[in-house]
Design a protein around this nucleic acid. Sequence first.
DNA 1: TGTTTATATTTGAATATTCTAATATAACAA
DNA 2: TTGTTATATTAGAATATTCAAATATAAACA
Lengths: 111, 111
Amino acid sequence: MTSPLHLYKAEFFKTLGHSVRLAILDALREGPLSVSELQAAIQTEQSILSQHLAKLRGMKFVSCRREKTTIYYHVHDREVYQFLDLAKNIYVRQLQQSQEMLKELTPSEIA
Amino acid sequence: MTSPLHLYKAEFFKTLGHSVRLAILDALREGPLSVSELQAAIQTEQSILSQHLAKLRGMKFVSCRREKTTIYYHVHDREVYQFLDLAKNIYVRQLQQSQEMLKELTPSEIA
DNA sequence: TGTTTATATTTGAATATTCTAATATAACAA
DNA sequence: TTGTTATATTAGAATATTCAAATATAAACA
């Protein structure tokens, strides 16, 4: 086990495992945005944004087209949003569970 | 942006971003397995397996119960498999696309 | 051509993750 | 109690990822 496919899958998930990259995908839900629009939307330094866009491009989560000097990014496969929403179901439940565990602790147990 | 929720989501995906952890989840598809059964199934050192199980537990992807000296792991929320299968649709398409790009390259372009 | 604007890439330091090896714990049996 | 089996945790080295700053590129325009 831990086949080449598992390694590829791992890269796939790793690419999603960064808050800026998730914010980028979220920002692109409504449609394409230029890099500077993205920069404004998620409040991130130009070079950092560019580096994260490169990773998303590398895994084909996004593509881009140039229009004069502006580069517009869009998600490559909109099914990714279904997927992200399904993820949300799961981690929201996971979070809730953690919350419940916290609530059951007495103050002395927490300290 | 890059809210606390985005940070949490990123942790969620990061937890899935390792081939051993994906192999563990796959191995648990059919039902619970003990640590040594997992070890046999995915051919991994005891301590490494244990460390990855700890991460999966931490994010509540798996839970475990003890039976005498044996510890059985199971996935915490079976919806994770729907989610992983949806992921597969997406990255298989992404892979195919990369393949097609490769095919279009002439040998000289590759070298 | 030179300048400006928009974006990408590179480099090295800072940080985080993973692995290996060793040690710890928990339950049970002799 | 001591030993054994199954699993977990810890510590430090090895590796990978991220960030910040500087530099590079590409298109458009004066």
